[in-house]
């Protein structure tokens, strides 16, 4: 499992943590039933407050990605990954469609829009 915290980012640490754990779950790095590291263990490894890790874990459970068994720890839930993925795909599609309308109303041609997309994909 890979987790990298950006301390200079404006995104709160617990959110970064949540996102990255979600990525691992969706990407298959963490499978259903896998145990997440204990709160203290992860906090110690990442050199952050245990409360921050707990916040991330609580939110992950809220969103249905994990299940916490009291006294034992947190485990990856049997979420319907395809559904979660689907929902995210849909959200991305919507944002693309918004961007495309904005681009068109700004007077950009379809070819120019594709060019912009290519450059962005190359950059990251």
């Amino acid at each position: 499992m890979k987790i990298i915290i950006n301390n200079t980012s404006m995104v709160p640490v617990y959110e970064q943590l949540m996102d990255q754990i979600k990525q691992e779950i969706i990407g298959g790095g963490l499978k259903e039933g896998d145990a997440l590291p204990s709160v203290r263990n992860l906090a110690g490894e990442l050199k952050i407050s245990a409360l921050t890790v707990k916040k991330a874990y609580d939110k992950l459970e809220e969103d249905g990605f994990t299940v916490t068994v009291h006294g034992k720890g947190s485990y990856v839930a049997a979420t319907d990954i395809p559904l979660a993925l689907e929902a995210r795909r849909k959200a991305v599609e919507e944002e693309f469609s918004e961007a495309v309308s904005k681009a068109r109303s700004a007077g950009l041609e379809d070819d120019e829009i594709r060019e912009i997309l290519e450059i962005l994909l190359e950059d990251s």
């Binding site: 709160p12 640490v13 617990y14 407050s49 409360l51 921050t52």
Partner: peptide, 9 residues
């Protein structure tokens, strides 16, 4: 304050 809030908020 919680450290989480000090650093995050």
């Amino acid at each position: 304050e919680d450290t989480d809030r000090l650093l995050g908020n």
